[in-house]
Nucleic acid binder design. Structure first.
Lengths: 159, 159
DNA sequence: AATAAACCATTGACTTTTTCAAGGATTAAA
DNA sequence: TTTAATCCTTGAAAAAGTCAATGGTTTATT
């Protein structure tokens, strides 16, 4: 029932690699983290027909920040052209709407509909639980610690 | 010259999004971290004609652990079929060799050649510097702290 | 010992994601 | 007013991810 005894039969060979240099390298750790984490999160979001990507867009569309598509691209570290089909999908399902930016008619602001906000509420709970599972090796304090460190690395580029 | 003043002109709009729920979500943070980090690392590895992926394989091939291709797939969280072209590329350049596993003739052990070890030495310095740049918002203690937390999440699934 | 089942590396087909260049519409700068 | 820059969108091409099937090998079952 627990996620920890997934493959106990094959005697996880991972332990033998603990001493390798690579295990200390950030790129490796983060890549593996993303693979495992987003895999689990996508599974948790499947009932809502969402993935981490579309969920992220929906989440931002639910905020009061009124993000333009360019904002979304920068935040998610994606090419602007990748945002288009992402928003298209959500818009088709009636979860978000493209609004004309009053300040700049080139831009389009992506905002959530009522249905979008409603779905987001449920989906958020799913991702929260998925996150707990992913972090089950850490104490609650360590989890917030990890989030804070990541947040500073990824958002605060000030010096 | 420094990486911190990349886009100071456009007055990073990211700050306005700090209050959004998404900024606390692990999946988002890790995805962004990977995008930024591996982007920088790939750039640093370009002089050696390596990417984070091929570099990781090379690194493991340089260890004394004698990893099979299956081991590589599990560690890097990739499909076994993705390892094939990865090792092919390194083998073509004479950096690694496929050896018959003495214990199991189905498996192939991937080991680095002398040229491979030599290149790895240089490439490793490049990734280390790239890592420092990525983590420049953190103190040295916080950097090891972050690595430790990630390591436990990603490798130690015991409970 | 013989048969069946499981496993490894590889191939191939397929989908998804990423990366780029170019375009029309709009705004900012000269 | 002209020039340059920005935003969204499109489309093409490369890279990465997913999945099923195969030959050779090992393990488990009978």
């Amino acid at each position: 029932m627990n996620a920890s005894n997934a493959k106990k039969s094959t005697k996880t060979k991972v332990e033998q690699f603990m001493k390798c240099d690579l295990m200390q390298e950030l790129d490796f750790l983060v890549a593996r983290m993303r693979s495992l984490g987003s895999g689990r999160a996508n599974l948790a979001l499947k009932p809502f027909d969402l993935k981490v990507r579309s969920y992220s867009v929906l989440s931002l569309a639910c905020s009061e920040v009124m993000p333009t598509q360019r904002d979304l691209a920068e935040l998610l570290a994606l090419d602007p052209s990748q945002i288009v089909p992402l928003v298209d999908g959500l818009e088709t399902k009636g979860l978000v709407t493209r609004l004309a930016d009053p300040n700049d008619r080139r831009s389009k602001v992506v905002v959530a509909t009522d249905a979008g906000k409603k779905l987001y509420g449920k989906a958020r709970k799913a991702t929260e639980q998925s996150e707990q599972e992913t972090l089950n090796a850490l104490t609650p304090e360590e989890r917030t610690q990890l989030r804070d460190l990541l947040s500073r690395v990824v958002l605060g580029d000030s010096a």
